[in-house]
């Protein structure tokens, strides 16, 4: 096994990170923890973008793309936490299952 990190190594780590993020998203009842799962998924995609940039395409496009992803993540988390806080204020719980006044 080649221990020297190449493109495939980064992609496999990123795949594992994506899978862990997905696991968090689908199994966690707490909205904040589900959000943490989403952040892991976004980070894994960013690793891909930077790794492709480094080993394959060159230029700077992958890194610029990654910067935009981070900006979007920040905006999304701000809105998400505002919603979680309001949910908590109304129901005293951040759990998604407890939010059941809508018929699913």
């Amino acid at each position: 096994m080649n221990l020297e990190p190449g493109l495939a190594h980064y992609l496999v780590v990123s795949a594992a990170l994506f899978a862990l993020g997905l696991l968090g998203l689908i199994t966690r009842r707490n909205a904040v923890q589900a959000l943490m799962g989403v952040e892991l998924m976004l980070n894994s995609a960013n690793i891909n973008l930077v790794a492709f940039n480094r080993f394959g395409t060159g230029g700077i496009d992958g890194q610029v793309f990654g910067t935009f992803v981070i900006v979007v993540a920040a905006a999304e988390v701000a809105v998400a936490l505002a919603l979680v806080l309001t949910l908590y204020r109304a129901r005293r719980t951040p759990n998604l299952d407890a939010a059941t006044s809508l018929r699913g």
Binding site: F18, G21, L22, L25, A31, A34, L35, V38, M41, L42, S44, A45, N46, N48, L49, F52, T57, D61, G62, F65, V69, E76, V79, A80, L83, V84, T86, L87, A90, R91, L96, A99, S101, L102
Partner: peptide, 29 residues
């Protein structure tokens, strides 16, 4: 309160599907 709940569900769904899309876009790149 239903308005807020709906928005939170909408957001988590949206964040998950856009995360998946981003991963796909990184592969396309």
């Amino acid at each position: 309160p239903r308005s807020n709940e709906a928005a939170l569900k909408y957001l988590l769904f949206g964040a998950a599907s856009s995360g998946a899309m981003l991963y796909g876009l990184s592969f396309v790149y």
